[in-house]
């Protein structure tokens, strides 16, 4: 009976779209965020503090401001957007890939800020031991630092996923609110409320709350367990 109500009340397309967008966005942020975090945590170079601040900025800037920056960057007249259009014939504006970009930028700080803490837990002596055993810097990262820090990084990754799922402002500006194409769960909730469709809004809200709560509980557990 419950599934009957769900099917009747809501079309679940926004859920699948949200999971797709948040999943791909987390993958992108994960790779970019972990590399940047490792760079900032382990090496000293000019502009390090600047890079640190830049990667943390999406945490404090309003999503609409980020959305505006992204439009300036990848919009039809943006320098990256024009290049993409002219060389590859791709436009990211009003596509789900655009939504991925928005979600990735917004969730980047969550990985970027949690990964260094995870790397700092790794004893530098272990990395040195690996070096004396003939490992290159890349091998040290993949065979020592990452395996020892992965729990903390994974916890950050889950937070980033949760944040990407809830992304609203930047997504709306970059990808719009096209039902079935770029309308994610949070946008669908907004739409449903605006249209006075309370049943649909309630179901969507319950779905997104459950998913996010599960993620937080699981990531909390992952963060606690360790080797020592």
């Amino acid at each position: 009976m419950w599934t009957g109500i769900v099917n009747f009340a809501v079309d679940l397309t926004p859920l699948w779209l949200t999971l797709k967008v948040a999943g791909v966005a987390t993958l992108v942020t994960f790779i970019v965020g972990v590399s940047l975090a490792f760079l900032v945590a382990r090496s000293r170079f000019w502009g390090r503090e600047g890079l640190d601040a830049l990667c943390t900025l999406p945490l404090v800037l309003p999503p609409t401001v980020l959305g505006y920056y992204l439009i300036v960057l990848i919009g039809r007249n943006g320098w990256l957007g024009r290049w993409l259009q002219e060389t590859w014939g791709i436009s990211l504006i009003f596509t789900w890939q655009g939504a991925v970009l928005a979600a990735a930028v917004v969730s980047l700080p969550l990985i970027f800020k949690s990964a260094p803490a995870a790397f700092e837990e790794v004893n530098l002596e272990l990395e040195n031991a690996a070096r004396t055993l003939g490992l290159s810097e890349t091998a040290v990262f993949f065979r020592v630092s990452l395996p020892l820090a992965w729990r903390g990084i994974l916890a950050g990754g889950m937070l980033a996923f949760a944040r990407a799922m809830g992304e609203f402002g930047a997504t709306l500006m970059v990808a719009g609110n096209l039902p079935g194409k770029t309308q994610t769960l949070s946008l669908a909730v907004y739409d449903a409320v605006q249209a006075g469709n309370d049943a649909r809004a309630t179901v969507l809200v319950i779905i997104i709350s459950t998913v996010c709560l599960t993620i937080l509980v699981v990531s909390g557990k992952a963060f606690k367990a360790g080797y020592m």
Partner: peptide, 18 residues
């Protein structure tokens, strides 16, 4: 370091815990 072929035993042994 990786090309020096020098064996190093650290004070607290630095065994890989994982």
């Amino acid at each position: 370091a990786r090309h020096r072929n020098v064996g190093y035993v650290f004070q607290d042994y630095a065994l890989f815990p994982h």
